[in-house]
């Protein structure tokens, strides 16, 4: 699904160039759930931006779903972002003035899907993340965890080849984080390919594989033998005071 060869990203905007990624090679197969870990500044977000076609590498190549991204022009990149990629951000990035439904409809707007179909698919996506009763709420009318679930609904509504999530639980407490992870796991079981950046090993362990970055290099590729099940984790937390996590 994702094939990355010798990917290098050098930022030359500052006084001296910053090598954010250096000769990174890896592959993500369809249906995999990969967590990306590494210390701050190790290049995780840079990697996600490249995978998400929001930025172009300095060198190396990247294939997504058989498409060589480096051959695409701006419009082609926009289409890939729209059709092949679903983004989930740490700070949610919903449009604040729009209802959950309108937010989820957004990617379909750029896909040229007609009003009725948009409505139907957005509603069903919101149902999948358990927000059927919140479709007409605006982001400031629902909790952070719910906002992130709207963002996930938005990411999956165009049925992308891969869902890219950069620290999606970073701004949430542990319980809400588990809920988000439960949704990702369920999507993954349904066949979705997911790449998720996290600082927390507890979160990473929900994935089936963890790749580690340090100083712009991929330093370790770890297979998770028995992934944590988010639903189980939530039960363990039970009714006791949830430990405060995130930032």
């Amino acid at each position: 699904m994702i094939q990355v060869f010798d990917l290098t990203k050098i930022y030359s905007t500052g006084a001296q160039p910053v090598i954010a990624l250096k000769d990174v090679n890896f592959e993500v197969k369809a249906g995999e759930f990969v967590a990306v870990m590494g210390p701050s500044g190790s290049g995780k977000s840079t990697m996600m931006n490249l995978l998400g076609c929001l930025d172009t590498p300095t060198s190396g190549s990247y294939k997504l779903d058989g498409i060589d991204i480096s051959t695409l022009d701006e419009t082609g990149m926009a289409r890939v972002r729209n059709q092949k990629i679903g983004f989930v951000f740490q700070n949610f990035n919903l449009l604040p003035r729009m209802t959950a439904l309108r937010n989820v409809e957004l990617p379909m707007l750029y896909a040229g899907i007609d009003v009725r179909e948009r409505m139907r698919r957005a509603t069903s996506a919101l149902e999948r993340v358990g927000l059927a009763d919140r479709i007409n709420h605006r982001p400031n009318q629902i909790s952070g965890g719910q906002v992130q679930r709207v963002a996930i609904a938005r990411a999956l509504v165009n049925e992308p080849a891969v869902i890219l999530a950069d620290e999606p639980t970073g701004n949430l407490d542990t319980r809400s984080g588990e809920e988000i992870m439960a949704i990702f796991q369920e999507l993954n079981r349904g066949g979705s390919t997911i790449v998720l950046v996290t600082h927390e090993r507890d979160i990473a362990l929900h994935a089936s594989r963890i790749i580690h970055f340090r100083d712009g290099r991929l330093v370790d590729d770890e297979k998770v033998e028995t992934s944590l099940d988010a639903v189980e984790q939530k039960k363990i937390m039970g009714e006791s005071n949830p430990r405060q996590g995130g930032k």
Partner: peptide
Amino acid sequence: TREIGIRIALGASRKD
């Protein structure tokens, strides 16, 4: 600016 960034991330082309 942020709205524009979001729209681009969701697949809006520069023309859009």
